[in-house]
Design a protein around this nucleic acid. Structure first.
Lengths: 222, 222
DNA sequence: TCGGACGATGTTGTGCACATCATAAGCAAA
DNA sequence: TTTGCTTATGATGTGCACAACATCGTCCGA
């Protein structure tokens, strides 16, 4: 395996751990421990960490540590407003009709969502399902820069959203049901061959889930 | 100066050199030479290069070298189609009325554009003007993620656009005149307080300059 | 009792020597 | 002449020792 491939693999592993909340926001990581775990020295590991820092998923402080990024309310708001617009764009810009395999994969995601039982202590299955859904959606447009940006913004916000959902522990089953409904609606639109409708559904759900998060935030402050 | 500040400064210098075509697409850089120039060792320099690689401005190949990224026609097309949509978004998402200082800066940019004399051998003044214009525009929306993405896409494409313009050496003065007109139009819209109009003007000019580049590409292939 | 200096500890940042790899020049054999 | 192997060269990648830095506990003195 080439050095480049190994670095990409480690970067993907760490990104997954951050996005799936194995590494919650604010956690301090140890370069030495990570280097030992992957069987490499700190030098190539630090290259990976530098890239994740460029993606706003980590930030290092000299003499203190390397921390998983958290998002302030205002930053989260701005990204959500942007994601709402980008979701709509995905249906207009270089749409690609899903293959039979991809459609089957979407149906499987809908089944997973319907079968998922909420557990306030293990956010990972829910986060994993959301990540898989996003990755599947990224195959609905051939515009790679747009999909890359969309995923990038998802990496930043989805984990914060899930984290706030599981820490407040309110409406967990309701949010899960809403998400399952979204996946089912998107599958219906895809089966009808209407990619723009699928994008609109996605946009609507981002907007609504954002509003519900705002409501949770307000009730928490009150 | 802290280590972080120094790294950011070097990254900005290298990014400017790439975007202003001091480092044209395809150029091979030497880690050793750059490290000597900035008076540091290869280790911290490589951290900077890794971040620029994450921004798709560089790519390294083991045993060969570090190269300034070039864009294939298809990649350029996809980014342009995306930029056209994002330019329109900037007027809708968290618009910020320009301060008196910013407005004066825009007028100064218009004067610089009107006064610029085309020289097929020195693309840098034109590229610098474009970069300054983009940086000024990034202050017209308070949505930082959107502005960061817009600038990021500009870093990737504007230099390719200028490079193709100066290598073909056709219509150079015409393109410069069109750009000067765009800046003047944007200033007029800003003076009227119509940010959405300014965004539309920008969008239109991106679209038109893209079409002219496509025409140059077709004539070059013929 | 309180405050501040100080050092022990653990972290990230840096410099350097070497490993690994790709390329091109050189050279010998067919 | 051409082909293929060998080798020299220079590039990026890695490991390690140490420097720079922040934090916290400790201890001494007012």
């Amino acid at each position: 395996m080439s050095a480049r491939d190994r670095a990409e693999r480690i970067e993907e592993i760490l990104r997954d751990r951050i996005c799936l909340l194995d590494y919650p926001p604010g956690l301090r990581l140890s370069e030495t421990e990570l280097a030992e775990e992957f069987g490499i020295s700190r030098t190539p590991l630090r290259r990976v960490l530098a890239r994740l820092e460029g993606a706003h998923l980590l930030h290092s402080v000299h003499g203190v540590g390397t921390f998983v990024t958290d998002l302030a309310d205002e930053e989260l708001d701005q990204i959500y407003r942007l994601r709402i617009e980008l979701a709509q764009l995905a249906g207009r810009l270089d749409p690609v009709a899903p293959s039979a395999d991809l459609l089957a994969h979407f149906r499987q995601l809908a089944q997973r969502a319907a079968a998922l039982v909420p557990d306030p202590d293990t956010p990972r299955p829910f986060a994993q399902l959301i990540m898989d859904f996003i990755q599947a959606q990224s195959r609905l447009s051939a515009n790679q820069p747009l999909m890359e940006i969309t995923q990038h913004l998802y990496f930043q916000t989805a984990r914060i959203w899930v984290h706030s959902l599981f820490t407040s522990a309110l409406d967990l089953s309701e949010e899960l049901a809403v998400f399952a409904q979204e996946v089912a609606d998107v599958v219906s639109a895809l089966e009808a061959g209407d990619l723009d409708a699928a994008a609109s559904i996605h946009r609507t759900h981002i907007s609504l889930s954002y509003r519900r998060m705002l409501a949770r935030r307000d009730s928490a402050q009150a």
